[in-house]
Design a protein around this nucleic acid. Sequence first.
DNA 1: TTACGTTTTAAACATCTGTTTAAGTTGATG
DNA 2: CATCAACTTAAACAGATGTTTAAAACGTAA
Lengths: 218, 218
Amino acid sequence: MAKTPEDPRGTRERVLRSAETLFAERGFEIVSLRDITGAADANVAAVNYHFGSKEKLIDAVIERHVVPINEERVELLNRFEAKWVESPLPVDKVLKAFLWPMLRHITSGEMSEELFGKFMGRLIGERGYRLPESVRPLFRMMAARFTSALRRAVPQLSEEEALWRMHFSFGVMSNTLTHGDTLREISGGRAGNPSIEKIFEEIIEFCAAGIEAVKKES
Amino acid sequence: MAKTPEDPRGTRERVLRSAETLFAERGFEIVSLRDITGAADANVAAVNYHFGSKEKLIDAVIERHVVPINEERVELLNRFEAKWVESPLPVDKVLKAFLWPMLRHITSGEMSEELFGKFMGRLIGERGYRLPESVRPLFRMMAARFTSALRRAVPQLSEEEALWRMHFSFGVMSNTLTHGDTLREISGGRAGNPSIEKIFEEIIEFCAAGIEAVKKES
DNA sequence: TTACGTTTTAAACATCTGTTTAAGTTGATG
DNA sequence: CATCAACTTAAACAGATGTTTAAAACGTAA
């Protein structure tokens, strides 16, 4: 009975799963290899045997979640663009193509909503866009595809404006995923308890309006 | 010749200033007391003598920057509201009251633009809104004042919507401050090199449009 | 000068960090 | 059974971590 790479009984797989949970909860740098291997019922040396170093383990965890999401993003954008051959693809559909794959990743149970949010947040907050070498080409391609889709959707935007407004939108998503639970807490219930789907809709509405905003003379 | 608390020759002050720089550059948890005291030409034990613990040193650094900014925010909002007694204060002015004190903090040289951005970003990313006990009442008051100002500016917003859209706007600011430099880098110059004042204007334009957005049937 | 509270210091504390070693175990193949 | 690679293991490595200690230096006032 061969152990497949996905076999949850395999040490490598157990370490990977414990690592992603702990990284999301507490951060990449703070979590120690002994925390991880302790939770995974494995020996400390297993990390260096299977991954080479802590840094490479971090890369493996990131790759595992970032690659499929970015692939789905491009596929979804392709599908939308195929349907909008006559009129240009509207902004909210571009944003949807970016956000929905994350939603699928959450609801498919790969990670809980809260954990996944914190994980994506730490990817930005702690690593500052510095993704592992292996995922950078895909990431670059995805970003280029979305920038040009955005500019076709809002032709009056200069390239510079388009880039900054994409950056702004990314800030909305990251901050909401990471700290949406905190907002619910500190508001004392006044922020309600909207579903993740509802929040994504609100984000799209907010960002679409921001991206389409036109200068007003003050 | 008495040493005032602000005397840069005092050990306490030198430790505080080294700490804030290193925290901004590398993060609160990762920077060690020996990194800090090394940069401040002080003894490791000085931290525990003057502050009690590393955690209390972190609190002191946060307090030092967050308190004056939040005070200025409330004052500026008061000044704006005093001038708009007839018509309601527009959204972009509310956002301006929130953002400008940060701008003043940067240009007054308390911290460089880049360092300050990273510092504010880490406050959210690493500490998740968990501010030291001593600044929480002021923060709560400031948030309440801005929420109500926002609702007067856009009356059709429910309280829940207003809170979430404030949260979204905060995400834009935090992410832009923290990772604006990264955007400039990875875009290969295509994002230009706008001044911090220009970026703040763009943020206000984006967020104002997002906050004022109205539902559109899809 | 002496005395006293404040501040600084080097050294040691116990514990934790990522990584390596070398001996062990396993399970399938010849 | 013997062989061999894949894997797991306990132990040790050198260095870093926040904190504490007790002695020394300092500045001021009696």
